[in-house]
Write a protein that binds this DNA or RNA. Structure first.
Length: 490
RNA sequence: GCGGGUGUAGCUCAGUGGUAGAGCGUCACGUUGCCAACGUGAAUGUCGUCGGUUCAAAUCCGAUCACCCGCUCCA
């Protein structure tokens, strides 16, 4: 069984069939940005729908949310992104290793500490690196001029050019959930443990881009923040690990291409108690495993940070919104009673909940489903390209054909199509040889083709052709809808 | 960011200074009628972009953009 192994072939397939196009292609493209074509948008919509159904709709303990992409700038001060996403970086000319300027040490003096930098001011300053030592190769003073990295996208709010506020496009959807924790709690009669889920766009100025839509600058996340009582966090972490892994398998990802990778203790973010990646074996890079989703135990870090953020608002006003001049205030002694705390009626205790965060990349999963579904097999000595999508994910659920374009067959076929399309994404085609029409649908991943032939006029039956087995079954016209419903129900 | 490679029709690619090409695909008509059939015809090109050299550039030179591979990085 031949299998696509080159990314080039996948890119070509995606363009040829209308799954994914390079963005603004007629102008030469824009680095690491892509558009979804007619089949791609259906596939991606189905991936989102499957996630929402599994994580929100079919659970009693998860609610949905849809936050704005723009948020109050202090959100990013509290979350840590405003500081950590703005770095001065230099490259060792001896070994090409990239290092943050504030991480460089020289022989004698203590290292230069420039946390909370204003990147514009810092970039303009002279940085004397002649005594600095490369941590990778030990070369002294062999550095390029420091480069400023701004990892969050910035924009301005306010039409008056003289009176605008710098705001950021969110680099993750999660913070919108944390800042709405109180709102959801107060409006939804939920009790811990419960989760809040969101699907939406995020933006990051990646230092390096990578491999087609795998690492793009504008991308879509599907994130769940599951709030639980401290002490129960490890159970819930295990629960979501299992749930999320099985989600991919249930939608057809081959078991041998999916695995967990636990983060090493020194790899963990300082606030995370545990973190595991769900990885897929993509056919690019060195055929290496790449992250689809990260599942983290974030403890009570985020809610506590936002309580500090709230307490810092006076400084925000005093510094006229300049985040680089603000330092987050310390926590209150009784922080656990703060506005983002939870009162447990049963135990009569107030605490800051722990958070388990499964964070999936929608574009990455879509690519994985696409790659994993691709197959070539041989039919009567001919190679057949087929995308074996799980029926829930297939962009087109059924194609309807008249066997020939005469004898009243197109009319019957059109009636069937008009009936089915109200419930399923369908496709009608009456042109060309029937075999070619079947093969086209194979390459689009359509699981079923319905063909109206001469016998339909005699006994009202139609053939249903299965994408994977190529078997044809006759069934009455009026049963086709039920057949599809059985096969496609999520 | 570094090194290597690539960029010509929707896709795969040929074309080394002198008329812009092939296969596949697409569309039309005819024929056929259940797995990429056949015949005839047709459409589709800023040769990635900008500049330079030249009588003449897809071809030579420079810059730039984008993608792929390998590093590096990774919030």
């Amino acid at each position: 069984m031949a299998k696509l192994t080159r990314l080039d072939d996948i890119v070509s397939l995606c363009k040829r069939r209308g799954f994914i196009f390079q963005l603004s292609e007629i102008y030469g493209g824009l680095a690491a940005c892509y558009d979804y074509g007619p089949l791609g948008v259906e596939l991606k919509r189905n991936v989102r729908a499957a996630w929402w159904k599994a994580v929100v709709q079919t659970r009693d303990d998860v609610l949905g949310l849809d936050c704005a992409i723009l948020m109050h700038p202090m959100v990013w001060k509290a979350s840590g992104h405003a500081d950590k996403f703005a770095d001065l970086v230099t490259v060792c000319t001896q070994c090409n290793t990239r290092t943050r300027v504030d991480h460089l040490a020289d022989g004698s003096a203590a290292q230069e500490h420039i946390e909370h930098v204003d990147i514009d001011i810092e970039a303009g300053k002279e940085h004397n690196l002649s005594n600095k030592v490369c941590p990778a190769c030990g070369a002294v003073g062999q550095f390029t001029k420091p480069m400023a990295f701004r990892l969050m996208f910035e924009t301005q709010m306010g039409a008056n050019a003289d009176d605008t506020m710098k705001v950021f496009l969110r680099p993750e959807t999660a913070q919108g959930i944390f800042v709405n924790f109180r709102n959801v709690l107060d409006s939804s009669r939920v009790k811990i443990p419960f989760g809040i889920a969101q699907i939406g766009k995020s933006f990051r100025n990646e230092v390096t881009t990578k491999a087609f839509i795998f690492r793009t600058r504008e991308f879509e996340q599907a994130e769940l923040e599951f709030f639980c009582k401290p002490g129960t966090d490890e159970e819930w972490y295990a629960h979501w690990k299992e749930q999320r892994f099985n989600w991919y398998l249930n939608l057809g990802i081959k078991k041998e291409n999916l695995r967990f990778r636990d983060h090493e203790p020194d790899e963990l973010a300082h606030y995370a108690k545990a973190c595991v990646d769900v990885e897929y074996k993509f056919p690019f890079g060195s055929g290496d495993w790449q992250e689809l989703e990260g599942i983290a135990n974030r403890t009570d870090f985020d809610l506590r940070q936002h309580q500090r953020g709230i307490r810092t608002m006076n400084d925000w006003y005093a510094q006229k919104g300049d985040l680089s001049k603000i330092t987050l205030r310390e926590e209150a002694e009784d922080y656990f009673k703060g506005p983002l705390s939870y009162f447990d009626e049963e135990t009569r205790q107030r605490y800051i909940p722990y958070v388990i965060e499964p964070s999936a990349g929608v574009d990455r999963s879509t690519l994985a489903f696409l790659v994993d579904a691709y197959d070539e097999d041989e039919v009567n000595g001919e190679t057949r390209n087929v995308l074996r999508f799980h029926p829930h994910l297939a962009p087109i659920k059924a194609a309807i054909f008249p066997l020939v374009k005469k004898d009243g067959l197109p009319e019957i076929a059109r009636n069937l199509y008009n009936d089915l399309k109200t419930q399923f994404q369908c496709f009608y085609d009456e042109k060309g040889a029937i075999g070619r029409r079947y093969r086209r649908q194979d390459e689009a991943g359509t699981p079923y083709c319905m063909t109206i032939d001469g016998q339909t006029k005699e006994d009202g039956t139609v053939t249903v052709r299965d994408r994977d087995s190529l078997q044809q079954t006759r069934m009455p016209l009026d049963q086709v809808k039920n057949f599809l419903r059985d096969k496609l129900e999520l």
